Simulated assay, not measured.
Amino acid sequence: MPDGLITKVAAGTVTEVTERFRTILETKGVTIFAVIDQAAAARSAGLSLRDTVLIIFGNPAAGTPIMELAPLTALDLPLKLLIWDDAGITRLAYYSPETISRRHDLPPETVTALAAIHPLTDALVAPQSSS
Rank of each mutant, 00 (worst) to 15 (best):
T64A: 02
F21G: 05
D105R: 11
A40C: 00
A61L: 09
G4F: 12
A62N: 07
G12K: 04
I56V: 15
S131M: 00
A74W: 01
F33H: 08
L54G: 14
A11C: 01
Q38V: 03
I32A: 04
L82K: 02
E68I: 14
A34Y: 09
L82A: 08
L92W: 06
H104Q: 10
E26C: 10
A39T: 00
V35S: 01
R22G: 12
I66W: 07
I66S: 06
L72H: 05
Y94D: 10
P71D: 02
I56A: 14
G29S: 10
L106P: 03
L77G: 06
P119L: 10
K80E: 08
P127N: 12
T31I: 13
L25W: 09
A123D: 10
I117F: 01
N59V: 10
A116Q: 12
R50H: 13
L75P: 05
P107V: 04
L47T: 12
M67A: 08
L81M: 06
L72S: 15
Q38W: 03
I24L: 15
K8N: 09
Q128G: 06
P97G: 03
A116L: 11
I89H: 06
G63Q: 08
E26A: 13
L5N: 01
V14E: 02
L81R: 13
D122R: 05
Y94G: 06
D51T: 04
R91G: 05
A93E: 11
I83W: 04
D76P: 07
P107E: 07
D105Y: 06
Q38A: 09
V53A: 00
T15K: 01
Q128E: 06
S44R: 15
A123W: 03
D85N: 14
L79S: 09
D86R: 02
R43F: 10
G58I: 00
P71R: 09
N59K: 13
L75S: 07
V14I: 07
I117W: 11
K80H: 02
A40L: 05
I83F: 09
P2T: 04
L69I: 03
P60T: 02
G4L: 15
G88L: 05
T110L: 08
H104I: 13
V14Y: 13
A93K: 07
D86V: 14
A74M: 14
G58S: 00
I24M: 15
V14C: 02
A87M: 06
A34V: 05
D76I: 01
V9C: 00
H118Y: 13
L92R: 04
S131P: 05
L120F: 15
I89Y: 03
D76M: 00
G29Y: 03
A116E: 09
A42M: 06
I83G: 04
